[in-house]
Design a binder for these strands. Structure first.
Length: 151
DNA sequence: GCCAACGTTGGC
DNA sequence: GCCAACGTTGGC
């Protein structure tokens, strides 16, 4: 089982939105970066644990835990010309973008980026590197354990 | 709203 | 296949 950190803009989908959904589940649609796509498509397995991270907002940081509950399949938004994630180069025969489904596990207190930076054991996290923009990043087990420990 | 960092695009 | 230009991300 692997651990991940997945960013979402709370104005789009927040941890509360996830908790309120039917089955507490949502498709992680809208990823348009190949590296992040590959993580979902090639590496994520059912049961993988996810830190749910709020980004591009007033209080960026980890706000909850989710888990992968469905393996990657084509992101339906790529085929919808009315959707902002529409990709004219994608076809149902050759889809370009994939997403997993994630299920709500729990809310946590906000662990903001400043606090994350305050723990030496976490300084290697991808999310803390300058210029990092990847919306999905692996979290190593020691880092996961450390963060769970401070919750 | 600024702007550094980075991924993608497209002309050559 | 290089690389400049461009668009986007995301913390601040």
């Amino acid at each position: 089982m692997r651990y991940w950190l997945m960013k979402s803009e709370p104005s789009d989908v927040s941890i509360d939105d996830l908790a309120k959904r039917a089955n507490k589940t949502i498709a992680w649609y809208g990823v348009r970066n190949y590296q992040a796509r590959n993580f979902m498509r090639d590496q994520m397995r059912i049961g993988d644990q996810v830190f749910f991270y709020h980004s591009s907002c007033k209080h960026p940081g980890i706000v909850g835990i989710a888990e992968v509950c469905k393996l990657a399949y084509p992101d339906t938004t790529q085929f919808d010309s009315n959707n902002k994630y529409f990709d004219p180069k994608a076809t149902s025969e050759i889809p370009r973008w994939f997403n997993v489904d994630v299920r709500f596990v729990s809310k946590t207190r906000l662990i903001d980026i400043k606090e994350l930076r305050s723990y030496p054991d976490l300084l290697g996290m991808r999310i803390l590197q300058k210029g990092n923009r990847l919306s999905i990043t692996p979290v190593d087990p020691a880092e996961w354990k450390c963060i769970i420990g401070i919750m």
